[in-house]
């Protein structure tokens, strides 16, 4: 009796031995920080002046909504998301359809079109800062001297009207490849028989797209959509590099404002509250999205 119990304990021990090193890392650098972060978000805690976090309940969260700069950052993040999201989906879908065709050179096209995925976003920011530059930027040069539309020239990153759109363009350049990969997998999973049957019925190309391809991509739309929305809500890298929130507060976004609160003003409590607010926002939106696009059963 005891021996078999001992053997059972030993048997349960084996998987835990395999897990242990990973669990130590997860506990130290994710679980503990998560709990600690929660505590800090409910505390008054200035890293420079405060000895340690002092519990102040929901104060940090309530104060956020009386903070004009926070509301602007929330609005800017919403704008970024609303513009980024449809463009991201359409571009990714269009390019996935292109890369799913059996044309010559498809491997080279795939490598080229997906390459921005591995370009660090901060370095993409440096590249695009130069491209958007007022005097020596290639974009203004093309507008003025190639397309002969000099009135369209802008101080792209210094103009309240255009700065955010420029950041969105960089985000799209970097991230569309991920959407393409997810859509491509969805396209490859559609049974060829569906198209063959349609061919017998004399269905043309566009009807194929609308009646077979798109309805069968529902799962991919859900994945790509959630992924895109989360990337938009946590936009940060290129904003720091290209505008750092400016001009004025025109491109201040939630992540940037959270970071500045925590590491420029050392108001850790407030920074952490914004971080949690953003995280909850991202999670709630992705759950809603998932429910809306859930494939019908049966």
């Amino acid at each position: 009796m005891t021996r078999s119990k001992a053997r059972q304990t030993k048997k349960a021990l084996v998987p835990w031995l395999f897990l242990l090193p990973a669990v130590v890392f997860l506990a130290t650098f994710l679980l503990y920080p998560l709990l600690s972060a929660l505590r800090i978000s409910f505390s008054e805690y200035n890293f420079v002046y405060s000895e340690k976090p002092v519990f102040n309940g929901l104060t940090n969260y309530i104060e956020l909504f009386q903070d004009r700069h926070f509301m602007i950052s929330l609005k800017n993040t919403a704008y970024y998301t609303v513009v980024f999201f449809p463009l991201f989906i359409l571009l990714a879908l269009f390019l996935a359809l292109l890369l799913n065709s059996k044309i010559r050179g498809i491997n080279a096209f795939q490598a080229a079109i997906l390459l921005p995925i591995v370009v660090p976003l901060s370095l993409a920011g440096v590249m695009f800062t130069w491209i958007f530059s007022q005097d020596f930027g290639i974009l203004n040069h093309i507008l003025a001297n190639v397309l002969h539309l000099p009135h369209l020239q802008r101080f792209w990153l210094g103009d309240v009207e255009t700065a955010m759109n420029a950041l969105i363009a960089v985000g799209l350049w970097k991230y569309t490849g991920f959407g393409i990969i997810l859509f491509l997998a969805g396209l490859k999973a559609i049974p060829v028989e569906l198209y063959e049957a349609a061919k017998v019925d004399g269905v043309n190309g566009w009807q194929n797209l609308i009646y077979i391809t798109l309805p069968n991509l529902k799962g991919s739309f859900s994945l790509v959509g959630i992924w895109g929305i989360i990337q938009a809500i946590k936009v940060y890298d290129q904003v720091v590099v290209m505008t750092n929130g400016g001009p004025g507060t025109a491109t201040s976004v939630l992540y940037l404002y959270a970071w500045k609160n925590a590491f420029t003003f050392f108001n850790m409590g407030k920074g952490q509250a914004i971080a949690f607010f953003t995280a909850v926002l991202a999670i709630v939106i992705s759950i809603v999205f998932q429910v809306l696009l859930r494939p019908e059963k049966g």
Binding site: F29, P33, S36, F47, A275
Partner: peptide, 20 residues
């Protein structure tokens, strides 16, 4: 836990890791 932390943006962990 693994699934849950995958959904949490990195920024949430940054302040405590900095302090640690």
């Amino acid at each position: 836990f693994i699934i849950a932390v995958l959904a949490i943006p990195y920024l949430v962990f940054l302040v405590p890791i900095y302090i640690m």
